[in-house]
Design a protein around this nucleic acid. Sequence first.
DNA 1: ATCCGTGCAAAGTCTTTGCAAATTA
DNA 2: TAATTTGCAAAGACTTTGCACGGAT
Lengths: 178, 178
Amino acid sequence: MAKQLTEDEIATAESIFREYLHDRGLKYTPERRTLLLEVLSNPDHFEAEQLLISLRQAGQRVAKATIYRTLPLLVNCGILRQVQFGDKLTHYEHAFGQNPHDHMVCRQCRRIIEFSSEDIVRLRTVIAARFRFHATSHRFQISGLCWECVQARPAGEQPFVPLDPGAIEDTGSPPSAP
Amino acid sequence: MAKQLTEDEIATAESIFREYLHDRGLKYTPERRTLLLEVLSNPDHFEAEQLLISLRQAGQRVAKATIYRTLPLLVNCGILRQVQFGDKLTHYEHAFGQNPHDHMVCRQCRRIIEFSSEDIVRLRTVIAARFRFHATSHRFQISGLCWECVQARPAGEQPFVPLDPGAIEDTGSPPSAP
DNA sequence: ATCCGTGCAAAGTCTTTGCAAATTA
DNA sequence: TAATTTGCAAAGACTTTGCACGGAT
């Protein structure tokens, strides 16, 4: 999932960021450059804290405040996308050169699987229309067990992993006519 | 949306809560009763803080800590459901006597529209199957503009309301074959 | 020469926790 | 009576902000 960017792609991202900053009178500082590069070489999904840690490990020193001030810039210029999973943490993922997608989260191992489906967008439009609602975006997150965890778990075992808050539980209720 | 519960329904909720507590050696205190009743008479969606405020207005006095300690109980016994919208706040909604549903949020007026669709569950299963993923729950949230706000907004006006973080933006990109 | 940005620590927000006194089953 | 709860305030986790110094254009 964490795709390795080519030098060209990195250069493109850099110029996007640079231009974004320039256009609004902001400066392309060494810290911002450091952060951009670190973000691009980081795994697809991460949080502010992880970024700080991987920077430290790389011998780089950027204040936490700077990270918190820079991440929104990277989001606004389209290089990152903010993602909310179940927890209170703000997660980020690469948006640069990625297709829009949604997420499946394994309750057991917390693995994140990305997927995209036109049907979702179609469905969202149909549903919205019923309420004369003009849909412009959506979040669709599926929780459950990935294949590996299903395998590893003998039938009937219910480890009671905390749920994604707000998820629609599969109660096994019979489908009801609309 | 905020449906008024009958006395019977309230009594049922109370016995559910009571039994839930009893079953695990917990106590049905006046504070818990107060909170249960307040929750049931509150609007469909609320947060911890709002609950505190409406309690105060009703002349009731329950410590904030007690609220934070009680809400999870009400969630676990199925009377409430935790919902995460875009922000960091933990929102709650009535689950007692409600059908599973998802939400549409208006970017403009923040109105929340509930909807349910079997197609979503069907779609989630189909998608999950592609990854040999066992889906047990989902969250589907649509952002956009409600009818009233579409009406109120002259074409071309883009007030730039902060987005639901993590939402898939409608970029108007042409549908691409998988 | 100006602004803008950084670091640091302090402040904020929402939530959790420790503890003694008060209650419930 | 024994164990759970409450209220209060302190602590926590994550994020934002104020300020003085340093740096980019």
